[in-house]
């Protein structure tokens, strides 16, 4: 009862919904960057929402199965194929023992989530199977998936309807330009009023340094800092602070030039000021941004952030109802 990895695609890792509770030790929550996509893929194949699946970036893996399984691929538009025959994303389909699941070229988005009935059952580390390669936790012996790996599968408990699909209206991907809503805060007061405006006025582009730890953005005007004598232990650059915790979604701008939004595998702290956070409702979207994509940051207040969170939760509830 295994899935055999023939080729690994790009940065393919085992992910579930992560391991909260250890961030104070520098171990991030990890888990799927696009949580809605993983949860939906799991529900489509009859798994618990938090079962472990595969996350791939831009290029999917080639997988061979040793038993009949149900598979669903959600997130990016990276069309799956079974023995070369096309299948739909966001849709449950059968792969028979001996057949090979592979992928066509990327059409939109960045990350796919492959759920397999029964889920992947590699060992649990600190409550999760999510791969955190820096700390050698989860995954396959603490690392991403490689060709030749045999991934164990659990028993599927629920029979599912082959061909069941999530309507397009419930699938979420970034617009063009993508919009990420931001709640200003943290060290917001460190930049000038003019820079507080320019950050939201400018269109940024996703840089090549974009991974599970964080996404870097380029192209907007450099941020200017309010003058001050740097506090003891903060470091000489005006963008430095006394090393502190970094919230998930926090936006640091080293030397004021290129914003970095920390994601699920965030470094838990460091010495750069942060101007606020991307709101929780928009974190999933970041996982679907490709390099060079234009992005606008949109200023919101707490009320709007909580309303957006509710809206996302309602969409998830609708998907649950549809697939229950």
């Amino acid at each position: 009862m295994t899935v055999n990895v023939i080729s690994a695609g790009i940065a393919t890792t085992i992910q579930d919904l992560g391991r909260p509770g250890y961030y104070h030790l520098g171990i991030p929550m990890g888990g799927a960057m696009d949580r809605l996509a993983l949860k939906t893929a799991n529900l489509l194949v009859g798994n618990d929402e938090g079962a472990a699946g595969l996350e791939s970036v831009f290029v999917g893996p080639e997988l061979e199965f040793t038993r009949d399984v149900t598979v669903a691929v959600c997130g990016a538009e990276l069309p799956p194929k079974v023995d070369g025959e096309p299948r739909d994303t966001w849709t449950a389909f059968t792969v028979k023992a001996g057949q090979v699941l592979s992928f066509d070229f990327l059409k939109s988005g960045a990350r796919i989530y492959i759920a397999i009935s029964g889920g992947i059952t590699t060992p649990v580390h600190l409550g999760s199977r999510s791969t955190y390669a820096i700390g050698a936790l989860g995954g396959v012996n603490g690392r991403p998936v490689q060709p030749g790996d045999s991934l164990p599968l659990g028993k599927s408990s629920k029979t599912v309807k082959d061909g069941i699909s999530v309507p397009v209206a419930l699938r979420r991907g970034p617009s063009n330009p993508a919009e990420l809503r931001v709640l200003p805060g943290l060290y917001w007061h460190r930049i000038t009023e003019q820079s507080q405006d320019s950050f939201f006025e400018d269109t940024w582009k996703v840089a090549n340094e974009a991974d599970r730890m964080g996404y870097r953005f380029q192209g907007g005007r450099k941020l200017e800092f309010v003058e001050r004598e740097q506090p003891f232990s903060a470091g000489a650059d005006p963008s430095n602070i006394t090393d502190a915790c970094y919230p998930y979604g926090s936006i640091q701008v080293p030397s004021g030039s290129e914003p970095i939004v920390l994601h699920r595998d965030a470094v838990s702290g460091g010495g750069y000021f942060m101007l606020g956070c991307v709101i929780s409702a928009d974190m999933d979207l970041i996982g679907q941004l490709q390099p060079n994509m234009p992005v606008r940051f949109v200023k919101v207040d707490m009320e709007a952030a909580l309303a957006a969170r509710k809206e996302q939760a309602a969409i998830m509830d609708e998907i649950r109802e549809l697939l229950s």
Binding site: G185, P231, A244, C245, G249, S250, G276, C277, S280, R309
Partner: peptide, 19 residues
């Protein structure tokens, strides 16, 4: 005291380091 998005509260005790 300041919010870090809708899921965090960040508290800066002091700008500079001291025991």
């Amino acid at each position: 005291y300041t919010f870090g998005g809708d899921e965090h509260i960040f508290v800066e005790v002091d700008e500079e380091m001291s025991l």
